[in-house]
Design a protein around this nucleic acid. Structure first.
Lengths: 177, 177
DNA sequence: GGATCGATATATCGGCGCTATATATGAGGA
DNA sequence: TCCTCATATATAGCGCCGATATATCGATCC
């Protein structure tokens, strides 16, 4: 699924600028399970306009570049429906933490401990984030939020119960002067 | 973390060919939380050789291209250690399933149901995969396997308990002639 | 027996997308 | 006063995935 399709999805929630779409990936409803950045969003919006899947109206602003507000066309809405009907790619998960943990037996114990601590802190923050429902959310958004909550909660519980496994495997270093 | 670093990591478990390294990402110990493909692995190995981080010996074969077996050098081992000491990128998770689910209220109920069924089947297979320990695994590999198991088990439980949320939101279609 | 398919093994091309950067300004904190 | 952050668009460079090319062997299938 290309960034163009993701942009169509973003616009299905209402008209938006490239800047606002970027925020949906950074902070917004997509942030926990999708990625896209300016370098792909702006070219995608241009391509979509060329293909008639979105339209663009410009709003003058002072001090800032003019806002370009994009809207889904009927053709674009249809195209999104098509994409959602196709075979979906399986989930992808990338973790440098787990890669690093593979070499726990080669790392100093302090390093492993700090890695786990950092990770626990980050995940607890995410769980906190995902705890509060929003009245305006679609059923799908609510579902995705709960899903994330469940997975992060399980991760935290696992980490707290099993961190000793890698910490014991790590290299104990003598206190250095 | 670049593919070059991941290759160094792969070779830390023993000498290997590009083909074998690829398998580590496809089926092997890395498959659940990392991605890399021929298009990046082969060039990476060439670069690593140029920089003296790995060495390469060629083994003649009949019928197939000659095997190029790569080994980590001392310099390469050191470089890997460095990378593992740097600040790690946070986990990334990409799910077209969750993206699609955001639009559950716009999709036919059959589609949503089939999506959930497919996903449950795939995840149950993964849990099965991750159930069996391997004597030869490093402590880190064992930890990563258990971690994956815990997360997938939690996902399955969540999906089974909450699938009704999106299925009820979906569009009920009349039986078509 | 012949055909097809999957595994073994290396390698490159095209194009997509991330990272960093450029540009410009107003608001708020140090 | 200065710096950082938010707003807003845009591009260049480069890393990486997906598809493709090439070649052979063993297994399965009809």
């Amino acid at each position: 699924m290309h960034v163009t399709t993701l942009c169509l999805g973003a616009l299905a929630f209402g008209d938006a600028t490239g800047y606002e779409i970027n925020k949906m990936f950074e902070d917004g409803p997509f942030s926990h399970f999708l990625d896209a950045s300016y370098g792909s969003i702006y070219p995608a919006l241009t391509r979509l306009t060329d293909e008639g899947l979105v339209t663009c109206r410009t709003e003058q602003q002072e001090g800032r570049p003019d806002k370009k507000i994009y809207s889904l066309t009927e053709k674009g809405r249809h195209q999104l429906g098509d994409a959602l009907g196709q075979q979906l790619a399986p989930d992808k998960f990338r973790s440098e933490f787990l890669f690093t943990v593979l070499f726990a037996h080669l790392l100093p114990r302090d390093r492993v401990r700090s890695l786990v601590d950092q990770r626990l802190a980050a995940m607890k923050e995410k769980v906190e984030d995902l705890s509060q429902a929003d009245e305006e959310d679609t059923p799908g958004m609510d579902f995705a939020r709960r899903y994330g909550h469940a997975v992060f909660a399980a991760s935290i519980e696992f980490l707290e119960r099993n961190r000793h496994l890698i910490e014991e495997a790590a290299i104990e270093e003598k206190a250095h002067a």
